[in-house]
Nucleic acid binder design. Structure first.
Ligand SMILES: [Zn+2]
Ligand SMILES: [Zn+2]
Ligand SMILES: [Zn+2]
Ligand SMILES: [Zn+2]
Lengths: 182, 182
DNA sequence: CATGAACTGTTATAAAGTAACAATGGTCAC
DNA sequence: GTGACCATTGTTACTTTATAACAGTTCATG
């Protein structure tokens, strides 16, 4: 679980355990953040009889190294650099494992992947989340989404449409990148 | 503008002009629906000095032929079948024109494109929308989204993140496809 | 007509994702 | 143990999606 340090300003949601509004864009002790996330994935795997094999473990660590969304081929390059097998299916299978078990998310807007920062309470099951995505540095922040926006739910109800998954991704510029652009 | 026929049941949003909750999944006079949409694009182009060139016009008609999201390469095949130039840039340029002017939308989840059904009030400018996407038949329904969901806006505010665009896409099964699957 | 801006035609290539199948390796019934 | 089974791996080949680059054309406007 990410150590969430809410700012003094603004209407930030509180860092209640379980609420999980983590602030990847704000300064934090990331080494600790990554260690905790890794530990919670290991715990979830142990609890559910999942195997965190070398390729899966490597891809997870690579994603946890920052809050930047990475493409499958960036991960593949990292695998190759580490001397591990690096054909596309290797990384897509690892990602399939991580995503389907809720340890990572696919960012549709980028065709890229980011480690989950929801913490242990959500680990082990694919869950709903919404994302803030910086179009410049590709860093990603995640927040839990309880249920589909009302207008969508209403439309679905009227049409007899069964919603199974909702993608919510906000693209923009993070504070750091905005400053860097003067 | 699409002739919106709200069902008698449910909590459907009303078909107020400007509200634009169109029901692509419900039976409607689609020939009329496509003609109207086409006319409103032509009007917007005339009003804003945009050129609806043959390739753009063809791609628009192809998208308007149904509410199914189409990939760039499906459109390319249609161009080829019509004896028009059919290299990838042809269709990507047409789509860039249609999307940036708000006449079509990219469905991120599918890497595909659908004509806009928001009607004339929104035509001519890229606008916010949320989508219902059938994972089976790929038909798409669009509804206007006023502003980002609150939890995202709060998170963005706390982090100093400037949201520029929000992707909201709900994937699931439409009524017809659910019935077809027994 | 000259000029520039927008658009077209074309070649080539990059980036993202999947199908298929033989081989390996744990786990469990017996 | 050992055979059967299932998940996982290694690998080849391929498909789908998207963009770079650049020469040529069209068209409104001065
Ligand atoms: Zn962190
Ligand atoms: Zn940034
Ligand atoms: Zn229609
Ligand atoms: Zn359907």
């Amino acid at each position: 679980m990410v150590t969430s340090r809410t700012t003094t300003s603004g209407t930030a949601t509180s860092a209640t355990p379980g609420g999980a509004a983590t602030a990847s864009f704000e300064p934090h002790d990331h080494a600790h953040c990554a260690e905790d996330a890794r530990a919670s994935v290991e715990a979830a795997c142990a609890a559910r009889g999942l195997r965190l094999t070398p390729a899966r473990s490597f891809v997870l660590d690579e994603l946890l190294a920052s809050h930047r969304a990475m493409t499958a081929y960036e991960l593949l390059d990292a695998l190759a650099a580490a001397g591990m097998p690096s054909q596309p299916p290797v990384v897509y299978r690892a990602l399939e494992f991580l995503v389907s078990n809720g340890f990572a998310h696919r960012i549709e807007r980028l065709g890229a992947f980011a480690a989950c920062t929801c913490g242990p309470q959500a680990s082990g099951t694919a869950h709903r989340a919404a994302f803030l995505i910086c179009r410049d540095c590709r860093h990603v922040a995640e927040t839990a989404m309880s249920r589909p926006p009302r207008s969508l739910a209403e439309m679905a109800g009227a049409a007899g449409f069964a919603i199974e998954r909702v993608v919510i991704e906000a693209e923009g510029l993070c504070a750091r990148c905005r400053d860097a652009a003067q």
